[in-house]
Amino acid sequence: MKQKGWKAGKIILGCGLLLMLLPIISFAQPYPTKPINLIVTFPPGGTLDTSTRILAIKAEKILGQPVIVSNVGGGAGSVALGQVAKKRPDGYDITSCASTGLIRIPQLRAVPYSHEDFVPIMHFTSVQSGLVVKSDSPYKTLKDLVEYARKNPGKVNYATSGAGSPMHMAMEYIADKEGIQWTHVPYAGGAPGLTAVLGGHVTAMSDSTEWLPHVKEGSLRLLVTHGERRMKSFPNVPTLRDLGFDFINETVFMIATPKGTPPAIVKKLEEAFHKAMEDPEFVRTIQNLEFDVAYRNSEDTKKYLEDAYNRFAVMIKKLNITKEPEKK
């Protein structure tokens, strides 16, 4: 009996060795020669997951190899990024993440990677967010709200889906610039915050586009958006920039690969995913999510992230955003 088991072991070992040799044998062929693993840094079903899956279906046709999408959730993307950072940089393990996990999280708390461990391939979507109040409230513009807060210090409070998020920073930026004070009430996610503002428990909500149907239907009023450009559905609502505040929500969805991936492979992936973005089904989905289809290539995304990283560092200091104390 024991011998039988031993024989099976030998066969398995032999097969394993052969498989390990395979990549060496097929070295001469151009990338990609085997399926590419694409790890989405959030659980299935969210906006990042949905848009990535459509993009991957299109990209695998262009690359000629399957792109296998899997999800690793947790820690606002940092669990997955920590894993991918340790992968071999051969272009077969790539990740689709929100820039949050690369530029914000590492500055707020200890994570086992840094933004320099990754080479961006491209970014494909920029996320929208904005400030809403109930439509039966007297605040017609951001200025109304600011003036009310000035006269009644501490009376205005606003919900967001997380401390240290761009939506939180936008509000504190306004408060800092106008010299006013309002109270931040963080909620665990967009939906509870939305309930709070609809129920009149908080004055305002600063968050990504969960408020959309309610603004369209008329129960909430959109005062200002945080994007680079005005939203297509609401051309009359100003951005923060329009109102003279130098702040934009710079969160983008992007594809990245571990540092050290050969430039030729990065180039190939960049081209493939860029082409995939032109697919009408992808464009329609992003528009349905009310985000912007936005593209930057590898080089530009890298620079973009670098700038955003530095701006965020300045902002944390200026606005006194709490972060995890350094371990001694």
């Binding site: 906006t47 959309l212 149907p213 369209k216 349905n288």
Partner: peptide, 30 residues
């Protein structure tokens, strides 16, 4: 809450929410 307010009360309803949006249906009071 999802169908009459457009608020997904749990992660599963959040998937309903994105399914509706992907199909171009706006969940909410309307």
């Amino acid at each position: 809450p999802l169908l009459s307010l457009g608020i997904p009360p749990n992660p599963i309803m959040a998937i309903f929410f994105s399914a509706l949006i992907i199909h171009g249906v706006q969940p909410g009071p309307l």
